[in-house]
């Protein structure tokens, strides 16, 4: 066993530990909605863009459903949703799970602020 190999193994070991200890980061484009959630005793909502864009083009939500393209600019109430607006256009137990499955959307950590998470190395635009 050569010294060089030992050094290489040690380096790889250290790198492995560093990767295991990588910080928790949300997925790119994840949005937390907490304008009204916690005030009403439920967890914040996590909206994953990645999950939705596999199934729908941006224009469906940002044109047909009228979601503004700015995290925090949309006030979405449960009344809207059960009336078929915003998320309720699909989350109606027909296209996607319905509003009775609270925990599936209200899945965020308590105390999180509304906004877009999972930014890249730019940390997302300054306004967010």
């Amino acid at each position: 066993m050569s010294n060089g190999l030992i050094k290489r193994a040690a380096l790889l070991g250290a790198l492995g530990l560093a990767l295991l200890a990588a910080p928790s980061v949300a997925e790119y484009g994840d949005v937390v909605l907490n304008k009204v959630s916690e005030k009403n005793g439920v967890r914040p909502v996590v909206f994953p863009h990645w999950f939705h864009r596999v199934r729908f083009r941006c224009k469906v939500c940002h044109s047909e459903l009228a979601f503004k393209m700015r995290a925090g600019a949309n006030v979405v109430t449960m009344a809207d949703i059960t009336n078929g607006k915003f998320c309720g256009m699909c989350h109606n137990n027909q296209i996607a799970w319905g509003a009775d499955k609270c925990d599936l959307c209200h899945s965020g950590k308590p105390g999180l602020k509304s906004g877009i998470y999972g930014g890249h190395q730019t940390s997302g635009p300054g306004r967010w």
Partner: peptide, 23 residues
Amino acid sequence: IASAQVSQAARKWLPLAADGIHD
């Protein structure tokens, strides 16, 4: 183990329970 980590590091996604925003 570290080499396996390095090869996966090319594309790796955190589990929801560890992503810092899901409860």
